[in-house]
């Protein structure tokens, strides 16, 4: 039996009086795509920020490929690729310049041309980041998460704010990552259904279910994942949360 790529045990995080994550535990197997699904404020982003070592948990234990995100920060950075929610990059640099910059940080980076092909930005290499559309910026952000040939990839709100066509292109890009372990944060049913092997449903900072998309549907006794989500959390994903710009 192989060691899980990500292990999260009894994770707790609060900001002042607000509980962001409460007693969350799960594992992601090597090569698995696990979705973190929930409404805004469910604790998804806090969870991945804890796993990425950007925040310190109040309690609990995290291991990524056996590494402690805080203690083994340097080592984790070599093997983890992260696409953060609404990240902006150096706005006046071009796509090619940004790719070169991030490639310079890793010992064995992917070739720039391969990365741009993967996210279909080859034709925009000389476009400045500030001149890209939202979808193109998002795709560049994904490419940069993959620059260092990561063994574990975190993708946070992959397609929020993108039009349907751009979403499909991003999804196709992610599907090409099959060899890697992916933790995908989403509040889009379509997205997790299409991309994820298993889905962890978070609500109010707690893990309420963890199963395959089909398993969640069967468990909730519903006909599709959306209904299963409502049955499990008592909440609906509001339309404006489902991938449309706010």
């Amino acid at each position: 039996m192989s060691v899980p790529a990500i292990q999260v045990e009894h994770l707790h995080k609060r900001y002042g009086d607000v509980v962001a994550v409460e007693d969350v535990s799960f594992e992601v197997a090597a090569g698995e795509v696990l979705g973190l699904l929930g409404v805004n404020g469910a604790g998804k982003t806090t969870t991945v920020e804890l796993i990425a070592g950007l925040r310190t948990p109040d309690e609990g234990r995290i291991r990524v490929l056996g590494l402690d995100p805080r203690r083994d920060r340097g080592a984790l950075r070599q093997v983890l690729g992260v696409q953060l929610q609404q990240t902006h990059l150096h706005h006046a640099l071009t796509v090619a310049e940004l790719v070169d910059l991030y490639r310079a940080f890793y010992p064995d980076p992917r070739p720039a041309a391969d990365l741009l092909d993967l996210v279909e930005l080859g034709g925009h290499a000389r476009t400045r980041f500030e001149k890209l559309s939202g979808g193109q910026q998002q795709r560049l952000s994904i490419a940069l998460a993959l620059v260092g040939r990561p063994r574990v990839v975190i993708l946070d709100e992959l397609t929020t704010g993108l039009d349907p066509r751009a979403r499909r292109r991003v999804w196709a890009g992610v599907e090409e990552l099959r060899a890697e372990t992916v933790l995908l944060v989403s509040h889009s049913m379509d997205e997790v259904e299409r991309l994820c092997d298993r889905v962890a449903v978070l609500d109010g900072g707690r893990l309420v279910a963890l199963d395959t998309p089909a398993g969640l549907v069967a468990r909730a006794g519903t006909t599709d994942l959306e209904e299963a989500f409502v049955a499990l959390t008592g909440r609906e994903l509001a339309p404006e949360e489902d991938g449309c710009p706010r």
Partner: peptide
Amino acid sequence: YYRRAGVLRRLAVTPA
């Protein structure tokens, strides 16, 4: 600007 735009945060998850 780098802090506000998340540039510093993004770099914090790279080896740089």
